[in-house]
Design a binder for these strands. Sequence first.
DNA 1: CATTTACTTAGCTCATCGGTTAAATAACCT
DNA 2: AGGTTATTTAACCGATGAGCTAAGTAAATG
Lengths: 134, 134
Amino acid sequence: MPLDPLSSTFAALADPTRRAILARLALGETSVMELAKPFDMSLPAISKHLKVLEHAGLISRGREAQWRPCRIAPSSFKQVDGWLGNFRRFWDESFNRLDGLLEEMKAEEAAKAPPHTTRKVRVKKEKQRGRTRG
Amino acid sequence: MPLDPLSSTFAALADPTRRAILARLALGETSVMELAKPFDMSLPAISKHLKVLEHAGLISRGREAQWRPCRIAPSSFKQVDGWLGNFRRFWDESFNRLDGLLEEMKAEEAAKAPPHTTRKVRVKKEKQRGRTRG
DNA sequence: CATTTACTTAGCTCATCGGTTAAATAACCT
DNA sequence: AGGTTATTTAACCGATGAGCTAAGTAAATG
């Protein structure tokens, strides 16, 4: 019984070899041989890893003569990011819209009031770092 | 030999029960009993899942009388998000620089109307993080 | 056609994982 | 103290996962 897509994807990402393969592929499409080079591991092992990555939707594979070039496939990454988004507010303080609005209001206010509010402004800027929606 | 932190975290996320637990915890801190309720599963099983989540740095646990309240812990989420960031350009079109510049230009153009002094800053941040609200 | 190159499949081992039940621990409540 | 409630630990089991070697497939090349 196959796992749900998100589970397969996370499972695929839970292996350092596979993450290293993805990191290499982020630099561009390449062959299995090329991908295998950095690892002290048999070729079949790499082949399995690629199968796992493919099944997880993290890579796709083409055919060029005897080579099977691999490349990053976006969709599963996107899904992981989407899932992670449900929790973003826990670490990205400025993610929350209310927070964002508040910060903005403070900024507006601080923009009028000069020097003694500097500290507050700096705090605000730090919180705002990473705020991407609004 | 324990896995590297990122591997443990991804491994922890690769289970639907554990992701459901996290989803519940996103609504707020709660007890093991409460967390176990939705699942057709023994309590020890849940206890194990929580141990995995804790070891993965995804939750932390307190002590209140006989309860061990669980809550989301931000750090590992953050790390996952950070790792994912290396690949964001593959699915988030507005992440890449050219696109970002384009967005900025558009924003500048559209800036005739709205009365925000902080506008420019916000656009810039958006470009940096590469995420815009669609 | 035979060989080389690039991979994949098959079959094995061993460790880990997700689940179980039964028993242990811990704190509260008569 | 004795019991109830909340949770963990122990011991086990079947399935899966990551690695191996050896053999199989597929396409270019001598």
